[in-house]
Amino acid sequence: MTQDARVRQRLWQQLPLLVGLVVLWMLLWGSLSLLNLVTGILVALLVTRVFFLPPVELSGRFNIFWLALFLAKFFGDLVFASFQVAYQALRPSGISQSSLIAVQLVTRSDFVLTLTSIALSLVPGSLVVEVDRERSILYLHALNTRNLDDVDAVRAQALRVEYLIVRVLGSKEDVKAVTS
């Protein structure tokens, strides 16, 4: 691969990030104008150069249908879990036992691992305490697990979230791994 092609490939890989930054910039200014677009692109390039991070390895897949399913499940979980935890906080009996649960994920991709952790952390009732990146193990803290069935339910829930995220943007190998 020539130097030129490598540079072009890296730019191509960073494109989703750059587009996201430009969109965020325009949302912050609250208007769509040519000036905003140009300054947005400049700021995005500057930020990605000055605060350099290793590029995220995207798989090149993206499925809108599964994204819709994922978002529906995510917001459904968010609402349900929020009120569940609120109920547990307010009811007289309070909470019983919690658990620290190891969840062995299928994927090896850092990006999918990160997104899964974020999605799980945002929903009250599950919390990522520790991540074993080498072996793709998440250690989750789950509230109010009365018995081992509840623990298995949390594990199944985490794997379900991972399944949906892989279906949205995981690599082909990951999709094969989670569907089998």
């Binding site: 968010l78 929020s82 935890v85 906080a89 309070g94 919690s98 945002l122 929903v123 009250p124 803290h141």
Partner: peptide, 20 residues
């Protein structure tokens, strides 16, 4: 106020942060 340890209190704290 009611939960006993740090992680449980964190669970309580995440509710208004996102859904609220």
């Amino acid at each position: 106020v009611r939960f006993h340890d740090v992680p449980s209190r964190l669970h309580a704290a995440t509710k208004p942060q996102i859904l609220g």
